[in-house]
Amino acid sequence: MTDFLAVIVGDFYARMLVLLLSATQWTIYLSLTAFVGGGLIGLAMTLLRIAPVKWARLFSAAYIWTFQSVPLLMLLFLIGLGMPAFFKVNVPPWAAATTALTLFTSAYMSEVWRGAIQSVPAGQWEAGRVLGLTFAQSLRYVVSPQAIKIAIPPTVGFMVQIIKGTSLAYIIDFNDLMRWGKKIGNSQLDGAEPFVVFPIVAAIYFLLCYPLTVLSRRLERRSGGEKLMVAAKGVNVGG
């Protein structure tokens, strides 16, 4: 890969690009872990948030408010730097980064999904109930299929926020794209000035995020034009 790139951009930049691209791997892994982990916890929190049990709703609300109100950077500091110093435990940067981003992601995801579920008209729940469906059956067979269609575009859109959020993990020495960009930019080598390196780093972030942005927009347009929405308008107010 280095040799191939060397032909195009020269030896120096080829080596720089390969370094940055291999660091990008870690950005991708971190993003995916946060997305999957945050998605799973977020799903659990969503279910607790709408459950017909008061303590479950309170617990979930407290969780969401906590992790939505604390800046991601603060979470990274607390887990990556605060915990090792305070509890005298060893927290590797990747563990701290994935934990912080997972908590952050789960809180936002469950808010998005709760919003999607609540945007399904109340009459749909009532129709399920009067047919004898249980809460879980109504959720599973009536409300979720409609909520998922509503939730997909913002969920894909939120992946962009996760990817950009991972860049903060450089602060606790996680070896992602941002950290390597900063290292190279600080290296004092000719041709590796910050104003050369950071645009390249930015371009790589852009290449990761832009397709997701486009996908999210496309999904939004599609679900907007669907008959689901037309029908949902017809069932706006229950009772």
């Binding site: 129709a127 009067v130 047919l131 004898g132 249980t134 409609q146 069932v235 229950g238």
Partner: peptide, 20 residues
């Protein structure tokens, strides 16, 4: 009371059919 909901049918002003 779920038991009574099984025995009683209801039709709403807004139909509330399942659009999906």
């Amino acid at each position: 009371n779920a038991a009574v909901q099984r025995r009683v049918g209801m039709v709403f002003q807004q139909f509330n059919l399942f659009p999906h």
